[in-house]
Each structure stands twice: as C-alpha cells, then as structure tokens.
Nucleic acid binder design. Structure first.
Lengths: 246, 246
DNA sequence: CAATCTATTATGTCCGGACATATATTGCAA
DNA sequence: TTGCAATATATGTCCGGACATAATAGATTG
C-alpha cells in the first residue's frame, strides 16, 4: 500500500488534492473535507494535512475560514509564476537611482478624458503634484509625474518636498493612516506631447512610456492616482517571474 | 514578563526578526541564530520559531539551507505587494482575445545589437518564429512577435502552427520536457520601424510597446527569447498588485 | 598531500496531543 | 417573527518530542 515515495508526504498529499481539484472531484465553490477527515483519508497527522493545505492556499487554490472549512477557489494553480524581486520600489525603479524634483503642487478639477483615464467621476477635485524625476548620475530627467491625491491631504505638500525619495502613498499612510491595499498599473506607449517633451529635454515626436497607477484602500476606494511619462531611451519596466513550485 | 499580546506569538516573533533585519542587527549576507537558539531567545517551541521563519522566507527576507542555517537575503520586506491575478497567460493577455498567425519559421544567426538585447553571445544560432497576433473581434493586428528558440527544437514548428493559442514555452515543455523556471520581462517604448509598421497596419512614425522576454530553465540557461511590438493604441500591459499582509 | 570516509550539525519532515478563536447553528426569550 | 445568547464545529495556534536528510568539518587512509 505504501509507496517508497521519494517526496515528502505532505507534498504528495498536496499534489493529490491539487489533482483532485483540477479534475473536478472537488469543484470550485465546494468545501473539501475537514482536516480531521483528511487525516483519516490519508492516514496521517493533522500537522501534515495542514502543511499540504498550506501549499494549496499559497497557490491560491483554496481559502480557509474558521468554521466554514477550506473552500475551493480556483481550479488551476494560478500564480504559477510570481515576481521574484518585486517590491513596489523596485518595480518603479525608485530610490537611489533618481530623485523627485517637485515642479508644482496645486488643486485642480479633473474632467473629460483625463477623468476617464484616471478612473474617477467627471469634475472631481484633486490635488495635483507635478514633479520631474532626475537621474542622480547623468542629471538628465527620466520621467515626468503627475500625482493626483485627495485634496484633503494638502498637508503632505511639505513632506513631499522634504522626502524626495519616498513614495507619496507611503507619506499619506504615515501622516493620515490611510493604507494602500491594492495598486493597479497600466503601461502604455505614447508619443510624448510637446510641453512634456520640452520638460524632459527630448524631441517632440519621440516615443515614451506612460504609466498609470491607481491606489486603492481596503474599502476599494481610490485615493491616489498617478500618470508618469518616461522617455523611451531612458526608462524601461523590468520584472522577473519565477515559478512557484519547482 | 508576558505581554497581553493580541497577535499570535509566531507573528510577533516574525515582526521582531523583520525589524532586526531592517535595522541592520542581522545584516544582509549574515546568518541569523539557529532555530534552537531562537527557541531559547524567545522562550518558545521550535514549531513556533519555524512558523515565524516561514513568514520571513515567504517574504523573501531569508533563505534556508540544510546545514548553513538561515541566511539574510534582503533587508526590505519585498513582495509587500504581489500580483493578484498573475498567471503568465493573464500577463501576456493571451488566450481568447487574440490568436497567433505564423508568418515564418526559419533558422537565423543572431549578431550585433540584437544579440545584445536578447542577451546571448554574438553569432549564436536560433530558430526564429515570426508571427502576427490578430484580435479575434476587430481582425486588426495587435502585435508582431519574433520568438527565438534553440534550433534543436525545430520539431515544434508544426505544433506552433497547430496550437495558435498555446505559449511556445508550454509547447517546448510538453514536447522536450525543458521547463521554464524563470522569466525576465522588459517593457520599453519605441518608434515602430517601417517594415513592422506596415505589417501592423500603422503609420511609420507611430509609437509602440516593445516587450522583451527571456525564458530560463532551472540551470539558469536561456533557451527561449521573444521580442514583441505592439501598436500604442491597441495594447497595454496591465497588472494589479495587492498587499500581501493585511 | 589528496581523496575518502565519518561524525557533527543545521534544517526538513512528522507525530499526537492541547487549547484558542472565529463562525455557524441552535435554542430561548421578548 | 425577531433578537440575543448558548453551543457546536471548524480552523488557528502552540507544545515537545522524534527521526530524516543534507552540508559541513574533521578524521582516516591511500
């Protein structure tokens, strides 16, 4: 009955359960057997079962609640790849490589196409913080950023100027306690518009990278958004994905 | 001595260790105390210590080896944000929205600037698979892709044509068993070169998104690379990041 | 001196128990 | 019927032990 399994026991069980979920034996939305039942099923200890279930949870296959049991959330082992080094700072390529030089901080009313791209209602009031990102080595501008924050957070203006290497979302979190729970990011290619091109010291018809970021709190409310334009030859978005389960 | 800690014990320990790493008490590259020592230090069981260390490992702060102990890898709690839905297919926006139309499959010798961007030696031989991605709804081309694979995999040509909605890396894995362990991706903005512009049915001087992907196996060997060019107004790279620890 | 064998030592896996805690259900009372 | 309290039940946390396994360092041998 017992195979001379080379793999650890909990990994075998995790594999079996994953297979069962993929095969539809445990359909999405259903609740799979309790831990003690699984102990009985696989003839092992609860500790081992939990280690196996932990794997499934890590893979995003199941969610677990105190009395409701472990619910099957997805049939396919999503997050097959995950970013290996991907703090937000790394992603944005912030920090030591370049600093923020604030150009202007003023309240504005967002309407029309801009409102649509930002994902807010027409005529919403925001505080716009425009800044230039300058590479500390070459002294050349690497990006123009318009950050839109809730106008009630106007007191962060000083801090934004004082801490040129800190994310504005971090400043808001420290000052007002509103915490970012989710970030949506869209990367597009554009032809850099003339005024921005001048600020970035590039030709008018050159290509650029436009990055839109939306910051949401735990309630799903967007309280910050930013649009960044980078010259094509001075910036790239890089990321590394690694397979989760070897 | 005992605080009325509301948080679980192992979480407190994880927090403390994270703090110690961030503060430099445990510098990057150093090896922090063994599990039994930590048991003594925090006056707890090995199980709890391991749960805490597990958190740090999950956050990418430490790596662990059989006899060398747990090594500090990074000072900042990276992966503070993780992609919420991020299978590779989602990221690439593959699948039902558009299909691959193969234009040519032929062996080439990569040299000069191309070799440099692809990240291989000058004069390396590859099998180049050029294809057009066409949106199934509008019938307009949304991207031009040059995939470079090891020329020994020339038998996949048929499969590439036969399965227009499957990743080429997946085809290689199924046919030859060589498995992708890591993917590096770089997104840049470019001006679309004339021949590509013609194929994509856009103006010559328009902006486009260039995506370079490199596929590595477990040994760190690159065995596939691809360069994709998308018209600026027909494609964007979107991703959602969610905070890991609420 | 080099190569090989052998302890030593760290993490990895696993056991079987205990109590805590959050949630769902049930039962009782207004 | 509605609202609240008691109970049941699932996962969460934690203990203290055991043996396995891999990597290192030391001892042994050619």
């Amino acid at each position: 009955m017992k195979k001379p399994a080379s793999k650890p026991h909990f990994a075998e069980i995790a594999r079996d359960l994953t297979e069962g979920i993929a095969a539809g034996r445990y359909p999405v939305g259903s609740v799979l057997p309790g831990e003690l039942e699984l102990c009985d099923l696989y003839d092992t200890s609860r500790h081992t079962i939990r280690a196996a279930l932990n794997e499934l949870q890590q893979l995003g296959l199941v969610s677990r609640k105190k009395n409701a049991g472990t619910r099957v959330e997805s049939a396919t082992p999503r997050n097959d790849f995950r970013p290996s080094l991907g703090s937000l700072e790394d992603l944005v390529q912030f920090g030591s490589t370049n600093v923020r030089v604030v150009q202007s901080i003023e309240p504005t009313t967002v309407k029309g196409a801009l409102a649509k791209t930002l994902g807010c209602f027409n005529g919403t009031d925001w505080l716009r913080i425009s800044s230039l990102r300058v590479d500390s080595a070459t002294q050349k501008p690497v990006g123009w950023t318009d950050v839109y924050v809730d106008p009630q957070y106007d007191e962060i203006a000083d801090r934004v100027r004082a801490a040129p290497d800190t994310l504005i979302s971090t400043l808001i979190e420290k000052r007002y306690g509103r915490r970012v729970a989710e970030i949506r990011q869209v990367v597009r290619a554009i032809l850099i518009p003339p005024p921005t091109a001048a600020a970035l010291q590039v030709d008018a018809a050159s290509a650029g990278l436009e990055i839109l970021r939306q910051y949401f709190d735990a309630a799903g409310q967007m309280f910050e958004a930013s649009i960044t334009v980078h010259p094509a030859d001075r910036f790239a978005v890089a990321m590394t994905l690694q397979r989760s389960a070897p």
